Measured scan of single mutants.
Amino acid sequence: LRQRHVACLARSERGLGFSIAGGKGSTPYRAGDAGIFVSRIAEGGAAHRAGTLQVGDRVLSINGVDVTEARHDHAVSLLTAASPTIALLLEREAGGP
């Protein structure tokens, strides 16, 4: 079961505080899956403080732009754009009992 949710992050002077992996033109985060995933969350960064991202979340869109088939460098450029806030649509595998 997959759950979707939106995370809104305000960029700090240190950026957004998370890294992505995967996407076309880069090493897959999961074998056989060209999706883009949250690969790291920086301690004390914007994403960590927001508490809405988890490592392993699939990134579906960035500020309304679909990145499900995107190249890695395109997703990075969307994240590093000048916008002071970033809205992410994420998909998470629902774990637990």
Results as ranks from 00 to 15, higher is better:
Thr80Val: 11
Ala94Leu: 11
Leu89Thr: 14
Ser83Trp: 07
Gly56Val: 00
Gly96His: 13
Gly17Met: 04
Cys8Ile: 14
Pro28Met: 10
Phe37Asp: 03
His5Ser: 09
Glu69Lys: 12
His72Phe: 10
Leu89Pro: 01
Ile20Tyr: 01
Thr80Trp: 08
Gly64Thr: 04
Asp33Arg: 08
Ala42Asn: 13
Ala87Tyr: 13
Gly56Cys: 04
Thr27Pro: 10
Ala87Pro: 04
Arg30Trp: 07
Gly95Glu: 12
Arg14Cys: 09
Glu43Lys: 10
Glu43Ile: 09
Arg92Gly: 03
Gly15Leu: 04
Gly95Arg: 10
Ala94Gly: 14
Val67Thr: 08
Ala87Leu: 11
Gly15Trp: 05
Ile86Ser: 03
Ala50Val: 07
Tyr29Arg: 05
Glu93Val: 09
Gly44Asp: 13
Leu79His: 02
Ala81Ser: 13
Glu91Asp: 07
Pro97Met: 11
Arg2Leu: 06
Gly35Lys: 01
Ile36Pro: 02
Val59Arg: 02
Lys24Gln: 07
Ala34Thr: 15
Phe37Tyr: 13
Ala7Asp: 03
Leu53Ala: 04
Ala47Glu: 07
Thr85Asn: 11
Val59His: 03
Val6Phe: 12
Phe37Thr: 03
Ile41Phe: 03
Gly35Val: 00
Gly32His: 12
Val65Arg: 08
Val59Lys: 01
Gly25Thr: 04
His5Trp: 08
Glu91Met: 04
Phe18Val: 07
His72Tyr: 13
Leu1Met: 15
Ala82Phe: 08
His5Ala: 06
Tyr29Ser: 05
Ser39Asp: 14
Gly51Leu: 04
Ala21Gly: 10
Asp57Gln: 02
Thr68Val: 06
Ala82Asp: 15
Asp73Cys: 09
Phe18Cys: 04
Val59Glu: 00
Gly44Ser: 07
Gly25Gln: 05
Pro97Gly: 14
Asp57Ala: 01
Val55Pro: 06
Gly96Leu: 12
Arg71His: 15
Glu43Met: 10
Leu16Ser: 04
Ile62Ser: 01
Ser61Asn: 11
Pro84Ala: 12
Val55Cys: 08
Arg71Met: 09
Leu53His: 03
Ile86Tyr: 15
Gly96Arg: 12
Thr80Met: 12
Gly32Cys: 10
Phe18Met: 09
Thr27Ala: 08
Gly35Thr: 01
Asp66Asn: 09
Asp73Arg: 06
Glu43Thr: 12
Glu91Gln: 09
Leu88Lys: 01
Ile36Ser: 00
Ile86Pro: 02
Asn63Pro: 01
